[in-house]
Design a binder for these strands. Structure first.
Lengths: 168, 168
DNA sequence: GATTTTATGTCAGTCATGTTGACTTATCTA
DNA sequence: TAGATAAGTCAACATGACTGACATAAAATC
């Protein structure tokens, strides 16, 4: 193992191609997160706040534990950013009607505004990259990223069976 | 402003497509860095050490300031991880011959070993994703990432009037 | 030759975000 | 009613960023 060079591989699997992929991901991800980070800093927030705003925005009524399982962080970590966001009026918590232990999360108007600002910044970058690369490249981009992530993360993307609304 | 939905766009530029791109990047990048992080933890290192090992490995003889300009962090931040890596024998510093203020960095044998271990972990994931997606998808993946990053980062990828690639 | 700039390093303090572990409260479920 | 679950809290710690101030050696410039 650890044979770093020389395999009888298709071109796109050669060592230097793979090496480039690693660096592409590093630079692209860094630049991708750079602009939102600047915007967030104006609010005294960080990337962790962004993720919470994003996933609450996309999943209104999400519970704390659902959010935790998406983010894969501890509740103590989440607690810090979430309580800030609640205290400053970006996120609203309401007790679940069926299960009153739950605190269902949703964006306030203020939260929605920030969410949209953040989205627009990232959208501009992605639209630019997508336009410059074309529809076919976009399909490839999506495919590779999808196959790169853990299988357990993938179902989130495929159909859209939404919340398992009737159950429990 | 901030019209989040409904534009007369090609399919691949629709809001929900862009939204998916954001999440694809989040999950793929997280999973992509997860395995190396575990490996690094065995050495008491973190992701910052990984980046230093990677770029020193790819650019033997790189100076501290060149490394700083790649990583875009402060010298104080770099200092902590770099001096650890030097102290523990993963990276060797030699004064520049032309400019003796410089400390040229390269991996030791031990450093090269760790570099290769880390590379192999990531290579496996990428090769899997590349194989499953196919050569054309890979081209699209590369194109989109390239167009997503800042222009200033791009020349690193295109020609290569660099030092010869010898892996020693 | 003296002065300034550059490359590198260091000390000290702060912040954001992650971790573990222990414990509480309210509520649901068996 | 007893135990499990959802959420939250307190405390301590690690990592990797940051700023600002300062030090040293060597190169470049005046």
């Amino acid at each position: 193992m650890t044979d770093i060079k020389s395999e009888p591989n298709p071109l796109f699997l050669r060592t230097d191609e793979i090496m480039q992929a690693i660096e592409l991901l590093f630079f692209a991800y860094r630049d991708f997160t750079g602009e939102p980070d600047e915007l967030l800093a104006e609010y005294g927030f960080g990337r962790a706040h962004h993720r919470v705003i994003h996933f609450v925005g996309r999943n209104p009524g999400i519970t704390v534990s659902e959010l935790l399982s998406i983010l894969q962080i501890t509740k103590q970590s989440l607690s810090r950013v979430l309580s800030q966001l609640v205290a400053e009026g970006f996120i609203k918590q309401t007790p679940g009607e069926i299960d009153r232990r739950q605190r269902l999360l949703e964006l306030t108007e203020k939260g929605t505004e920030l969410d949209e600002k953040l989205f627009n910044v990232q959208r501009q970058r992605i639209v630019k990259a997508y336009k410059e690369s074309g529809a076919e490249a976009v399909a490839g981009f999506r495919s590779v990223l999808m196959n790169m992530m853990e299988e357990s993360d993938r179902p989130r993307f495929t159909p859209k069976p939404k919340r398992p609304s009737s159950r429990r």
